[in-house]
């Protein structure tokens, strides 16, 4: 058991578990974000709860950050190790004949998502941490000195999607996310050993998830760009 992470199968199992965790998180993130379109007040209340409830902030958030970092680091380690397994490339390789572009280019879609995560942290996470833990404002209000000013989260979200360039970057990132998920969703189940009578149905569900969630995020970004 101790050496499981040193084995090829152990590493891919760990990669798959972190992927499954991140896919659950992504669904939860989308469920909250879509509230910004359906009901700004509810979005504000849920955002405030997520940003101030100690279980989420001090227990789940560190687990999430660890999951994100682990998935990226393990992805790079596996990519480097796999590249070493073929030191001379083929003069002619017809990869498209036997596998999808998505499956062969997870590192590139992953790097695009990593770049997006950096931008996303700069846009939302860093200002949030600054407000709460440096400025010490845990009120969640637009004007902390005025309890009638209302919660700030919806306004901050809309403010971020004023610039067209940022919306374009978000849309591109979500396209790469869809490409990553189109292979990654099923791949995670295969890696944990789940290939059985449910696999066909799972493949259909994975396509719905892999396209549906990124398209939903794109819709939210464009909606706020058009309605700010």
């Amino acid at each position: 058991m101790s050496g499981i992470l040193n084995s090829s199968i152990g590493r891919k199992f760990a990669m798959a578990l972190s992927a499954l965790f991140l896919m659950v998180f992504l669904l939860q993130h989308f469920s909250i974000n879509i509230l910004s379109v359906l009901s700004p007040d509810t979005f504000n209340e849920v955002s405030h709860f997520m940003g101030t409830f100690w279980v989420i902030q001090y227990l789940l958030q560190p687990v999430l950050i660890f999951g994100v970092v682990f998935h990226f680091v393990m992805g790079f380690i596996l990519e480097i190790k796999n590249n070493k397994a073929r030191q001379i490339s083929y003069a002619k390789n017809n990869g498209g004949a036997n596998s999808t572009w998505m499956s062969r280019n997870m590192i590139w879609s992953g790097l695009a998502i990593l770049a997006f995560v950096v931008l996303h942290f700069y846009d939302f996470w860093l200002p949030e941490v600054t407000t709460k833990f440096i400025d010490g404002d845990m009120s969640g209000l637009i004007d902390p000195s005025n309890s009638e000013s209302g919660l700030r989260y919806y306004e901050e979200l809309q403010h971020k999607f004023v610039d067209a360039w940022r919306v374009v970057l978000y849309v591109i990132a979500f396209i790469f996310l869809a490409l990553h998920l189109l292979h990654g969703f099923n791949s995670a189940f295969q890696s944990i050993g789940a290939n059985n009578k449910y696999t066909k149905g799972l493949k259909t569900f994975s396509k719905i998830y892999a396209i549906g969630i990124p398209v939903g995020f794109i819709f939210i970004a464009i909606f706020h760009f058009l309605n700010h």
Partner: peptide, 14 residues
Amino acid sequence: GFGNCTNTGACEVE
């Protein structure tokens, strides 16, 4: 020194 499987499915096809 074999690499790790990333489930591309190329092996099954070929």
